[in-house]
Write a protein that binds this DNA or RNA. Structure first.
Lengths: 271, 271
DNA sequence: CCGGCTCGTCCGGAATATTGGATACTAATC
DNA sequence: GATTAGTATCCAATATTCCGGACGAGCCGG
């Protein structure tokens, strides 16, 4: 069944030479990327003229290209003439780093927090309308909870969820909730949108969130926000524990989860 | 002249709506940029399907675009499915930051060094084949030297020049020198390429460079490399002084310029 | 003031990417 | 195993970008 090895029948007879990189999609995109790499390799500002001769791009095309990139902040004029990489690329670079560090540093921090408090610890992010559990470390007394790693749960089921949506304004939050709010297994999670929003604001303000019995009978959690360089809540760390231990150690657990989240925030450049 | 306000006569009657950003150049480039911004705003991985619906790009186009961007490392597959911003964007972001910080932090550090040692201090970078003086602070006894701010001098005329080219391998270095080596005003600068290369290697290894009378009678300089996050020498700081004071304070000046360069390196993420 | 140079813009024909749909493939879900 | 939803590739017509060259402006040295 079409198990022939030849993946891409195109370019059966290559016109020899130009073995640099095989042609792919849009030419202008490749050229834009080449401009970036040229600037990267150069390490400093250059002129359009140099780009034209170095990259063999027609003059008019180069100007158009540079204009498009400059208009969006991917290139910017340098002080003393010439152009260089723009601020937008810096923003993108930081976003990449935050995403990578979130898993790399996050897993370490989640483990440490589990060792400290002995309970189950999770790190979650917002994906579309739902909360996604990215990392989980089981405590010494594993609890049967809904969320496995990779599972998605409605934001109104968990304390972390309330933090993850706390960046949205009322309008965006309302429309997100209208799509995603569900009755929780125990039926105790808030489903009333205005009330939920009120709680979201309160939790964000106080810097942590908690929940009890809303999703699991006899269990609850405390959560703290992970804030990135731009001030957004990009993730939340939560401790899940049985009701009795949660009540008994509420202060200590709250402090610990907040410290862990603050540490991860700092790693992400978030103050 | 031609001071009429209308920049681009095309699109005289805009089809209303889509006032976001006026059309410019290549459509695919704009779309690639939109994908970046979409990912940035999202803060986490997404799927091509989502890009298609969010950005209103035809499916086949989106796949081609994503492939082009992925092939060059501007997007990369995320662990658990989906794609996200790629490492290349991180590199570009750091290059942007280094460039900006070089002037911002560099000017401060150059000033401080001038105040400390009382001599003329310069910060230079490599531009094409020549050394470009980016910043200069006059010492208490200004020397008449060739290099003004913004001036370009052959790399073999200055101690800084030897450091700035020290990242290049022998081949690249040779061809650069063949184009740019000049006799210095005093005639004492090295013009023999193999010998010069040997000196470049030595200076880079020992972490600083010096020169005496090669460009100015009765003057010389000591220079130290500014190393960025990727280990490249992106700039050099140098102290220029009259021969007698240079001989007298060689150790102190060398130490001071190395400290200043190390501080700037650290600010640029260079260890 | 002139010629020579680079920078930057503009234009119509030619080359090429874009598009929508058909088509597999994969992975869940029933 | 069948069904659905989503992912990914291929193709030919066509709408778009790209190209080369012409043009104007600024700058320099003579």
């Amino acid at each position: 069944m079409t198990q022939d090895g030849k993946r891409r029948p195109r370019a059966a007879a290559a016109p020899l030479s130009s073995a640099t990189d095989d042609v792919g999609g849009s030419r202008s995109v490749r050229r834009a990327l080449e401009i970036f790499e040229f600037l990267l390799q150069l390490g400093g500002p250059t002129t359009i003229g140099e780009i034209v001769s170095a990259l063999q791009i027609p003059k008019s095309t180069a100007y158009e290209l540079v204009r498009t990139l400059s208009d969006s902040g991917y290139l910017e004029p340098s002080r003393r003439g010439g152009i260089f990489l723009g601020r937008k690329l810096f923003e993108l670079g930081m976003a990449y780093r935050a995403q990578v560090d979130l898993l790399r540093d996050g897993s370490q921090i989640v483990e440490d927090l589990r060792d400290t408090c002995g309970e189950t610890v999770q790190l979650s992010v917002l994906e579309n309308d739902m909360m996604l559990v990215l990392l989980k470390e089981e405590g010494s007394h594993p609890i049967r909870i809904i969320s496995r790693v990779g599972s998605r749960v409605p934001v109104n089921w968990a304390a972390s969820g309330r933090l993850l949506v706390s960046d949205l304004d009322d309008g965006a939050l309302t429309s997100l909730l209208e799509k995603s709010v569900r009755q929780s297994p125990t039926g105790r999670a808030l489903t009333d949108i205005p009330k939920f929003i009120q709680q979201v604001r309160k939790f964000r303000k106080q810097g942590y969130a908690s929940e009890l019995n809303e999703t699991n009978e006899h269990a609850g959690c405390v959560a703290a926000p992970v804030i990135d360089g731009s001030g957004r809540c990009v993730a939340a760390i939560s401790i899940v524990a049985p009701e009795h231990r949660l009540k008994q150690n509420r202060e200590a657990l709250t402090r610990q989860v907040r410290e862990a989240a603050a540490m991860l925030s700092k790693r992400l450049g978030g103050r």
